[in-house]
Design a protein around this nucleic acid. Structure first.
Length: 347
DNA sequence: CATCCACCGGAAATGTTGGGAC
DNA sequence: GTCCCAACATTTCCGGTGGATG
């Protein structure tokens, strides 16, 4: 039995890459000029940054698709390929159509990549850059910057504004990145896009305008907004009203969080759960890390899972911070000692 | 002014897995 | 197979931080 409003679920899926990018004309033109109508051979690096849900990833994926077959393209989501070696493997695969195992020397992969990319146009996108910079990403960037090929390197990040402070000097000066900033959508622009997606995915007249304006004025993160709309469509009996949208707001946000965490470990989820629980229980805002580590430990005990060292969890917390799932206030000493205060953002 | 808070975060150590040479 | 060498996830170790307290 299907009494759902959804006629075509695809345009509401998180991985759906739309054919058009409204309100991103300037960014599209600049990226196209750099990638597809590249004027001069040699190196170029673009640093694409801006908040989550502003279309960075999807626009780049769409442009990679438009590249002619003669161009070797490689998209690397660095939250999954978070070391130089793993990222090199992805590039190696794109260049040679061959998958190397794990027991090689980094230098051997680098040499092969260097040889196979002579006289080839290569576009490499490193998305979620902060996750690899947390490890040995700098070495990777330095290697890529020194490649003697026609390489277009695109670095994407939602939490970094400035690479100068995050890269070694020689790496930065060798890359000379051009910045392209994606501003957040305005509520009006967000509404536009939601309307368009609703039109493509849902039965006519199945969503109230006020439901969409409510979503668009609450969050300008389009990824989150689309999760919200999809959740609303899935759960509505009949027309999607503003009231219904409000009712399922929390559930929609949880879906969004779950989606962000799919590529991460169960410990990441449990850590988030620990923070979530503590936030619900206490009215004071700001929870210190010690408390979170303790709660995570307790959760592991009840699920009969092995816990991790606090040192490791500290890194995982940083991952959640990179995903904008938590806000962290750093105290480098003082009354509270050296610690972080963690908060959940409002939707 | 010394000491303490409470955890940060770099570095080294440990254990596991996979590759290549013999 | 055996041996050695990489990469990697995780643990262990520990120096460091700056306002509050006495």
């Amino acid at each position: 039995m299907n009494h759902s409003n959804i006629e075509n679920p695809t345009p509401l899926q998180p991985n759906y890459v739309p054919p058009e990018f409204p309100h991103r004309g300037e960014e599209t033109a600049r990226l196209k000029a750099a990638i597809i109508n590249k004027s001069s051979p040699g190196h170029q690096t673009l640093f694409v940054h801006g908040p989550r849900g502003t279309g960075k990833t999807h626009l780049l994926l769409s442009l990679l698709n438009e590249c002619p077959d003669s161009v070797v393209t490689c998209y690397v989501p660095c939250h999954q390929y978070n070391t130089q070696y793993k990222a090199l493997k992805q590039i190696y695969q794109a260049v040679t159509n061959d998958e190397p195992g794990d027991g090689h020397h980094t230098a051997a992969l680098q040499r092969t990549i260097e040889n196979r990319t002579q006289a080839v146009n290569v576009v490499v996108v490193l998305d979620e850059l902060e996750f690899i910079l947390h490890n040995d990403g700098d070495d990777l960037l330095y290697f890529l910057s020194r490649l003697d090929t026609d390489l277009t390197l695109i670095l994407i990040s939602a939490t970094l504004n400035d690479l100068t402070s995050r890269l070694e000097e020689r790496t930065y000066s060798s890359l000379q990145p051009q910045r392209i900033k994606f501003e957040p959508y305005t509520a009006e622009q967000c509404y536009d896009i939601l309307v368009e997606r609703a039109r493509k995915a849902l039965a006519p007249q199945s969503v109230h305008r006020q439901a969409l304006t409510h979503i668009a004025s609450t969050t300008q993160n389009l990824t989150a907004g689309l999760h919200w709309l999809r959740t609303a469509a899935k759960t509505a009996h009949g027309i999607i009203t503003k009231h219904h949208a409000k009712e399922i707001q929390t559930q929609a946000y949880q879906n969004h969080v779950e989606h962000l965490l799919t590529d991460f470990s169960d410990h990441h989820s449990r850590l988030y759960q620990a923070i979530h629980e503590l936030t619900q229980e206490q009215e004071k805002s700001g929870i210190r890390t010690g408390e979170i580590y303790q709660r995570h430990q307790d959760l592991c005990d009840t699920y009969n899972e092995e816990s991790l060292s606090n040192r490791r969890l500290s890194d995982y917390l940083k991952h959640l911070e990179h995903l904008n799932l938590i806000k962290a206030n750093y105290h480098y000493g003082g009354t509270k000692g050296k610690t972080r205060e963690i908060q959940l953002p409002r939707f």
